[in-house]
């Protein structure tokens, strides 16, 4: 039945166009409007119409809009604890595991503190898919093959690649296509599969990694704290209820895209699959040192060791839970 209440119009700031990444929040907007007969609406502003992607947290703090998307890697300094989810080789490839771990981390005091300085509170994760590499030339069949490879990778993945001896070259996403086609870089990492396909990377490459899972990042939809506090309790409750169906819609959108892209990649490109032993080696050689360095670098700012331990613990917990079910 319809939820009654005052007329509330919220603005949501995001970048880019309507796509899988925005499917979750679109579902939320649909649900709240439907259940309140249009009394509570969330209007999604695409294409940075309200704010530049990297300034969305500023806009939330100022109160220019009630909700917004942001990604942790856009500005590590603005959300130091969130950067833990950008560490390389965290096992977040499974959708259910990814969702549970991220949901748990959003409640961690360090995560809450990161957002509090922007007068924000996390609402739901964008469940950014695991990154994989697409590349041109000889496929890197072993860990040693990455040495000397010119790669486009950022954040924790970039750090890991450097440990492996790869050469990092910063190229904006919009130029990756040309950079690979012309050999300026050999390989690029992007959220798999949708971002590779969006930038047409698969049309200029020869191979792709499908189980390297070098890392991911955290993009989140946040709410201005004051706006949330002002919301009538029945609307607050509705927002929380909308999360589950929204996550389902989000995962479904990514899965649908993979259903199209994966066969396409497999038919055109050579799939590089690593054995469990090799993956373990990747994690030990290129993962662990980066984790340790991250903890050391952030010691003074917050309890970095605890944040890292919590992630690891939550991953184990979620993996056990979902393994049992399946």
């Amino acid at each position: 039945q319809t939820i009654d209440g005052p007329k509330v119009e919220w603005n949501f700031s995001t970048w880019g166009k309507k796509r899988a990444f925005t499917a979750g929040i679109e579902k939320v907007a649909e649900i709240v409007s439907q259940r309140t007969a249009g009394k509570f609406t969330i209007k999604i502003h695409y294409a940075e119409a309200l704010s530049k992607d990297k300034e969305n947290l500023d806009g939330i703090k100022i109160g220019a809009f009630e909700m917004a998307d942001f990604c942790n890697f856009y500005h590590p300094g603005k959300n130091p604890a969130y950067m833990v989810l950008s560490l390389p080789f965290l096992s977040l490839a499974d959708w259910n595991v990814s969702k549970d771990v991220r949901e748990a981390m959003l409640k961690h005091p360090a995560f809450v503190a990161d957002m509090a300085q922007w007068n924000a509170q996390a609402y739901m994760s964008g469940l950014l898919p695991q990154y994989e590499f697409l590349g041109k030339g000889k496929p890197p069949a072993t860990i040693e093959d990455w040495k000397g490879l010119r790669v486009r990778a950022g954040g924790g993945i970039g750090d890991a690649m450097r440990v492996l001896g790869a050469v990092l070259s910063t190229v904006p996403a919009t130029e990756v296509y040309t950079a690979i086609e012309r050999g300026t870089v050999d390989a690029a990492s992007f959220p798999f599969t949708y971002a590779h396909a969006a930038y047409q990377v698969h049309t200029v490459t020869d191979w792709f990694t499908s189980n390297l899972s070098p890392g991911t990042a955290e993009c989140n939809s946040v709410i201005n704290k004051d706006a949330y506090a002002k919301l009538p309790p029945q609307y607050q409750k509705l927002l929380q209820e909308a999360k589950e169906p929204a996550y389902a819609a989000l995962v479904n959108a990514y899965v649908e895209i993979d259903k199209v892209n994966l066969p396409l990649f497999k038919s055109k490109l050579k799939e590089v699959v690593y054995t469990d032993a090799e993956l373990k080696k990747f994690r030990e050689v290129a993962g662990k040192p980066v984790w340790d360095k991250w903890v050391a670098d952030n010691k003074g700012k917050f309890d970095a060791q605890n944040v890292l331990d919590t992630v690891v613990k939550e991953i184990e917990k979620a993996e056990a839970k979902h393994k049992k079910k399946s």
């Binding site: 530049k52 100022i62 809009f65």
Partner: peptide, 23 residues
């Protein structure tokens, strides 16, 4: 549309964020 504090605040971010762009 959105009031002085939020409005002027968001306007203050635009010159830097819109000019400082690699492309």
């Amino acid at each position: 549309i959105i009031g002085w504090k939020a409005g002027a605040g968001i306007v203050g971010t635009i010159p830097h964020s819109k000019s400082v762009n690699y492309t």
